[in-house]
């Protein structure tokens, strides 16, 4: 059982959510020498500071990113994409790298409420802007309606494209889009699901749109 499970676990076992261990804690102690991954806090972030010596980044520049309502004052290599910055520096790994060239949609996040590809953005371009990642939409105990619809409709398989799909789907709610499935499918075509869960993705989005 991972640390975050322990933290988030309500006292009443009958109300407890499904437990899924992430490789640390009890199971980790089975093998000597195992290095556990660091626990994530409620915002989904990891504190790398305690033992990290801090990467040696020559020419690093300061930047303040506002992600999911939290300010992050960072020093980064100017080459760092918004995607790599969110994942590796801010440690929010819900946003995924699938192609790194704007060809799959897995890295979709919102900047000032609009969906963009974080792999084709430099982090420096977004100093001070409002960035939202999948972690900012909801948590397992308090899901965004789109997250809940994806769960109910089985709108994924492996789950790797799912963050990007959901970020696109949530943005789509505010975009000009016809009511029919074909319009949704066209506007969701920038998010590749190699597992092919497209029918269920459309069903989830339409379910949310009907209720909005």
């Amino acid at each position: 059982m991972s640390n975050d499970d322990l933290k988030s676990q309500p006292a009443d076992p009958t109300r407890r959510k499904f437990l899924l261990t992430s490789g640390s804690g009890v199971a980790a102690s089975l093998v000597v020498g195992y290095v556990p991954a660091l626990a994530r806090d409620a915002a989904g972030e990891v504190d790398l500071a305690p033992t990290a010596e801090g990467p040696n980044i020559e020419g690093a520049v300061p930047i303040t990113l506002r992600i999911n309502g939290r300010e992050h004052s960072l020093r980064i290599d100017p080459r760092t994409t918004l995607l790599d910055c969110i994942r590796e520096t801010v440690t929010l790994t819900g946003t995924k790298k699938g192609c790194d060239h704007g060809q799959c949609g897995a890295c979709t996040v919102h900047v000032n409420g609009k969906r963009v590809l974080s792999c084709l953005n430099l982090a420096l371009m977004h100093d001070g802007e409002e960035i939202t990642t999948v972690e900012g939409l909801g948590t397992p105990d308090a899901m965004h309606p789109m997250q809940a619809a994806f769960l109910a409709c089985d709108a994924y398989q492996c789950g790797y494209c799912t963050s990007g799909q959901i970020m696109s789907a949530v943005a789509l709610l505010k975009e000009p889009c016809g009511t029919d499935d074909a319009s949704v499918k066209e506007l969701m075509s920038g998010n590749i699901c190699r597992c092919g869960a497209y029918s269920n993705i459309v069903a989830a989005i339409q379910q949310v749109r009907k209720n909005v």
């Binding site: 953005n121 943005a171 920038g190």
Partner: peptide, 9 residues
Amino acid sequence: GASAQIRNM
């Protein structure tokens, strides 16, 4: 052209 995300950028 492209995708909704790219058109936003």
